[in-house]
């Protein structure tokens, strides 16, 4: 009997690995062919947001923690990268490292404060912390206030590759985002990731099994914040701009929307969601406030009738894990 069960489990695991592999191959093919079909800047923007949403999903989808303030890490990393590249003349890889490290540091502080409450309070606390740092960004000379930091030099990667060349920049962004994507996949499927999922399903029981769940939650929070920061740092170089938009609460709402549309707790959902929402915003850019209204409407529709999201629904129909 045991061997039959084991074999079934092994087969299920094998199947799910295969479905993930197929989906990854499709995504890779699309992203490699992408710059020949679509504007590279659009793709790079979507890729940055895809990474941002994947980082966010690590927390909401796999630990069940709803952060309403992820713009904090995205935006501040973007500021520090822009500042390091422009005012200190740092090379792009160092500038990105500085931005990402800033996000990690902010994530440690915010994580320790926020995990002291759960559920709905956690969401409100993260939102309030992000708003606080938004107001700081508004006043601090480093951020350039309303103007932001403009004309950030992209520089030469490792002193070798000129990132002002659009295709070089695209390859760089693609490599960074794919590496981070695989890292997140690895985290989710590690023993550490299993504990995170256990916390999501039943925290008291996880505690009773001897896990110090608060530590796991803080680590997951910091990982998520750091990767969100990486996305913000790369974004600063792509657009050569860091601005208040990136730290505003609407940005936190946007990443939540991307993840929700794609599918909470799915591997590919955030990527699909990010591409869809970024595309929608591109097309609706000239319609002003309608973007806000449509975003709100998508939220309402998703919550009422489409809680699995696109990829979640697809995976459910096909009986696979995506």
């Amino acid at each position: 009997m045991a061997t039959v069960a084991q074999a079934a489990a092994l087969k299920a695991r094998h199947d799910s690995e295969r479905s993930v592999g197929v989906a990854f191959a499709i995504m890779l093919a699309f992203l490699v062919a992408g710059p020949f079909l679509l504007y590279p800047v659009f793709l790079m923007k979507a890729l940055c947001f895809a990474l941002f949403a994947c980082a966010f999903n690590l927390l909401i989808g796999y630990v069940g923690l709803v952060s309403f303030g992820h713009a904090l890490y995205f935006g501040w990393a973007s500021y520090l990268t822009a500042y390091a590249a422009k005012s200190w003349g740092m090379q792009p890889e160092i500038a990105i490292l500085i931005g990402t490290a800033t996000a990690a540091a902010l994530g440690i502080v915010a994580g320790i404060v926020a995990i002291r409450r759960q559920g709905i309070y956690f969401a409100m606390i993260t939102l309030a912390l992000a708003q606080m740092m938004y107001l700081v960004a508004l006043r601090l000379p480093l951020t350039g206030g309303e103007d932001g930091i403009q004309a950030v030099p992209r520089g030469r990667l490792f002193g070798l590759f000129d990132l002002n060349h659009e295709m070089t920049m695209y390859i760089f962004v693609l490599v960074v985002v794919l590496a981070a994507f695989l890292l997140i996949y690895r985290i989710i499927n590690s023993p550490f990731g299993e504990v995170l999922k256990a916390i999501r399903e039943n925290e008291p029981r996880t505690i009773s099994l001897g896990y110090q769940t608060d530590r796991y939650k803080v680590v997951a929070f910091v990982l998520s914040a750091t990767l969100a920061g990486l996305a913000g740092s790369v974004k600063a170089l792509v657009f050569q701009l860091a601005s208040l938009t990136d730290v505003h609460w609407t940005m936190s709402g946007e990443v939540l929307l991307m993840t929700l549309v794609g599918g909470l707790g799915t591997i590919f959902g955030p990527v699909v969601g990010a591409f869809l929402i970024v595309a929608m915003e591109n097309y609706l850019a000239s319609f002003g406030q309608w973007v806000l209204i449509i975003q709100g409407a998508i939220f309402v529709v998703c919550v009422l009738v489409f809680r699995r999201g696109i990829v979640g629904e697809l995976a459910h129909r096909l009986h696979v894990r995506l």
Partner: peptide, 24 residues
């Protein structure tokens, strides 16, 4: 009967719609 999180998301969406309409 759902996680309270969905209430937060739904009311957030409504807030965006209302604010967007008035701004428009």
């Amino acid at each position: 009967k759902l996680d309270p999180l969905y209430g937060l998301l739904l009311t957030f969406g409504l807030a965006l719609i209302i604010e967007g309409l008035f701004r428009n």
